[in-house]
């Protein structure tokens, strides 16, 4: 069974994010890393391919400037190969344009199962995976907290408001996994060395047969007209605990009439 994992390479979340003052797009220059949310999908893919008795895991990403560091992390974890779509025409792409690019790359990978995170850490639009599924004509199961593959179908425990649903779905299919679904492995030294020689295909929009006018800023059909700081909330009273701070909490709960 071949598994494709859509991953995002993002600016380090520990660094303060920034917007381009003119285009109002996220500034994504500088070193990018594998989105932590995606490490769960990569791990899940590796475990499923192993449990199925073989098959390759392909990681797929769209990123500016030929960025591959996050893909190398996934390769070091054990993925067999990577596809990177990088093209100046993609700057300013909305989630749907991103989905079109990823869908074309997934099609090329020939995967039986496509995995993705529920949403990225930086943009958190949270719709791209399902858009990919629709563009590929695939069924999808989102918010998986457990995934098993049984021959030609996938069985998923899907998070719901009340608990979870057991969902089955024939392959090929797309599944989004929640963080914590598996424990991502750390790349070993051997893995990191091996990753350097693994195949990494770099493609342009034209290679995928996509019209450059459909993606990037040229194809965007939503414009950000303004960005402002959200209303800040004032901080209140600070009490350093000296063994009796709980009494102040009780007092406040009492005043608020919740006890």
């Amino acid at each position: 069974m071949n598994v494709a994992v859509c991953v995002k390479q993002i600016p380090d979340p520990a660094a303060p994010p920034a917007l381009d003052p003119v285009t109002k797009n996220l500034v994504r220059t500088g070193k990018l890393i594998l989105d932590d949310s995606d490490s769960y999908g990569v791990e899940m893919a590796l475990q499923l391919a192993e449990a199925a008795g073989g098959g390759e895991v392909t990681v797929i990403s769209m990123a500016p400037g030929g960025e591959t560091s996050g893909l190398r992390t996934a390769l070091a974890m054990g993925a067999a190969k990577a596809i990177l779509v990088s093209d100046d025409a993609l700057a300013g792409s909305d989630a749907l344009a991103t989905a079109k690019v990823l869908a074309a790359a997934v099609r090329r990978s020939g995967a039986d199962l496509v995995l993705a995170a529920t949403e990225s850490t930086d943009g958190y639009t949270g719709t791209t995976p399902v858009q990919v599924a629709e563009l590929l004509g695939l069924p999808s199961v989102t918010f998986a907290k457990k995934v098993t593959v049984d021959g030609s179908s996938v069985r998923v425990e899907r998070q719901t408001e009340a608990g979870y649903d057991e969902v089955t779905c024939p392959l090929p299919a797309l599944v989004t996994v929640t963080a914590g679904v598996v424990e991502p492995r750390y790349p070993s030294f051997k893995g990191i060395m091996a990753a350097k020689s693994k195949p990494l295909e770099q493609l342009t929009v034209a290679d995928l047969g996509i019209d450059a006018g459909e993606v990037g800023a040229a194809g965007a059909r939503q414009v950000v007209v303004d960005v402002a700081a959200a209303e800040a909330r004032a901080s209140g009273e600070i009490v350093v605990d000296e063994g009796d701070a709980h009494e102040r909490i009780v007092q406040m709960l009492d005043q608020l009439k919740v006890i």
Binding site: A95, A97, T127, A133, R158, Q222
Partner: peptide
């Protein structure tokens, strides 16, 4: 959970972007 599924599929079907959050 379901609302986001509907939104993603609708966006791709209509070829219209979706604004979330």
């Amino acid at each position: 959970y379901d609302g986001r599924d509907i939104a993603g599929r609708l966006s791709a079907r209509l070829d219209r972007p979706v604004i979330t959050n």
